[in-house]
Amino acid sequence: MIKILKKYENSIYSLTAILLAFLVGAVLIHLSGFSVIKAYSTLFDGAFGSVFNLTQTFMNTIPLIFTGLAVAIGFKSGLFNIGGEGQMYLGAFTTAITAIYLGFLPGYILIPIALIMGGFAGSAWSFLPGYLKAKTGAHEVVTTIMMNYIGILTASYLLLKYFKEEGPIPQTVLIPESARLPELIEYSRLTWAIFIAVFVIIIIDIFFKRTKLGYKIQTVGENRSAAEYAGINSNKMMVLSMMISGFVAGLAGSTIVMGVLHRFITNFSPGYGFTGIAVAVLGKNKPWGVLFAAILFGALQTGGITMQLFAKIPMDLMVIIQGLVILFVAAPILIKKLLRK
C-alpha cells in the first residue's frame, strides 16, 4: 500500500494542489458576491457539458500540450525556455506561408511538410538563445523573453509587408483545403491535431527514457559536472535541447493554423506560450503529466468563458485559480503537511 502511494506520490500532491486551489477559489468567489455552486457548475458544464464544449476544451488543450512539452524539454537539460510564445508565432507563420505557397501538393505530402517547416521555424528561433548560453553564458531566461518580442513582431512585420490579404484585417489568405487537418467531429475545431499532440508526447517520452541522446541531455540537466566528466559535450546538448524545445513550440503554432484558424492572424494567441510554463510545472516536466495539466488548463480556459457569459462571473477568477494551482504545486511542503494530518 505504502509502495503504491510512493509511486503515485507526485500525482497525489498535484491532485491535492488542484483541489486546494479550487477550495481557495471558492472562498474568493463567495467573497466577491457570487454563488460558488453556480460558478463551478457553469465552469464544469462549459468545459465538459456537451460534445461541443468538450471539443472547445480540447481545442484549447492542444497548443498547451505543445508549449508545455517545450518547456519540459528545456528543463531536462536545465534550461528554462520562456520563449515558447515567440517560437509558436514563427511556427504558425511559417506553416501558413508554406501551406499557401505549396498548395498544389496533395494533403498527405503538404501536411507533414507544413508541420515540419513550422517546427523548424521554432527551432531556428530557440537556437540563438541556446547558442548564446553555450558560448557566452547569456542567461536563457533573458534571451528567450527578448526573442519573444522579436519573434512576434517579425511575424507581424512580414505578414503586413508581404503576405497580407486584401482588406482591413491583418491576416493571410486561407490555406488550401488540402493543408487543413481533418476534423474528428464535423463542424467542430477538434481535429487530427490531437493525434499529433499525443504522438509527440509518446516520441518525447521515449526519447528521454530510451535514447542515448535523451540520456545525454538529461545528464547535463541533472549534473553538468558529471556530464562533462563522462565526456558529454554539455554545450552541444544544451543547444540541441533548446532546438527540440523550439521545434515542439513551433508545432503549437502549426497545429493552430492548420486545425483552427486556417490562416495566420496577428495576435492569435491568448498566451499559450506562457501558460505552457505553468502546464510544465504542474505536469512535473513529465510528458504524460503535461497532457493532464494541459487538459486542466484547457478546461479552465474554456469553462471560464462560459462562466463569464452565462453566470456573469468574470473570467479573471479562472486566471486566479490557475495561479493558485501553480502556487500550491510549487509549495509541496505545505501539501505534505496537510496530507500527513
Binding site: T219, E222, N223, A226, Y229
Partner: peptide, 9 residues
C-alpha cells in the same frame, strides 16, 4: 558527488 555520479539517477 560532483563529478562521479548523477545522484538523482
Amino acid at each position: 558527488l560532483k563529478r562521479g555520479l548523477v545522484p538523482s539517477y
